[in-house]
Amino acid sequence: MIDLVNPFALPFMARALVTLLVLAVAAGTVGVIVNLRRLEFMSDGLTHAVFPGLVIGFIAAGSPGLLPGALVAALISAVLLSLLSRRSGDQNVIAIVLTSFFSLGIVVVSTMDGYSGQLTEMLFGRLLSVTDAQAVITAVLVAAAVLLVALTWRKQVFRAFDRSGSAAAGIRTTWLDIAANGAVAMFVVAAAAAVGTLLVLAVLIVPAASARLLTRTIAPAVVVATVIAALGSWLGLSLSWHLSIELDVQAAPGATVALTLVALYALAVVASLLLSKIRRVR
């Protein structure tokens, strides 16, 4: 039986769980807006754009340089992507920004000695070596991201529902886009140290997508997405602990959490199919 309680008596496991639970709050709010506004690809672009920031920050100041570097890169690219995609109105721009930033990061990191180890860390995070300071920064960034989304919530929903209607109502879309992308950027930075840039999307997108399947309106979706993200984090961490301690299989904790979230999504798909069957019968 997988132990769901005792592993978290260890400080490094507790810190990992707390970090993920903090991220779960953003998964429920920022994630739902990403889902409604279909910003998944934009978010993917931001995760890649953050990467060279991590690398340059690390080269400039070692580990303490990671977060400031990522934050600068994320905010620059959030504004850049908002303005560019507004101009051209298509997703090619995102793909081009995404790949160019990512390549830049790889080129810079490949000039360093022993880069493959550092590369792995930046791509996949170090969930079990999150420090107290990092956990605090994560919490601050998540709070800022949630605040940004909360303040623009009704307008974001309006714009997601009906772009021309919201523009007609005088909603300034440029600022709204920068707010949404800025919130995603801060979330990406907050999560990058813990789960790595590549797995950020798992926490941001998968719980909200699951919640969308299970709920009919937005407010319950926020709650359900948060709960799913928290549950997946807890189960995933426990599973990873169980695998490595009991079965001696060294499973990367970040990726195990991501897979657990995907498994919960699969359950949500099944549940939503059953729900719609029941509704049809009634």
Binding site: L36, L151, T152, W153, R154, K155, V157, F158, A160, F161, D162, R163, S164, G165, S166, A168, A169, G170, I171, R212, T215, R216, T217, I218, A221
Partner: peptide, 30 residues
Amino acid sequence: LLPQRQSVTEDFPVTLQQVVTMGRIPHRGI
């Protein structure tokens, strides 16, 4: 504005009342 029909996302998770409440945003802001 009553926009053209295809500009609206039809499977969007909002109730009719929530949609109509969007119309008050110009008066209420955030």
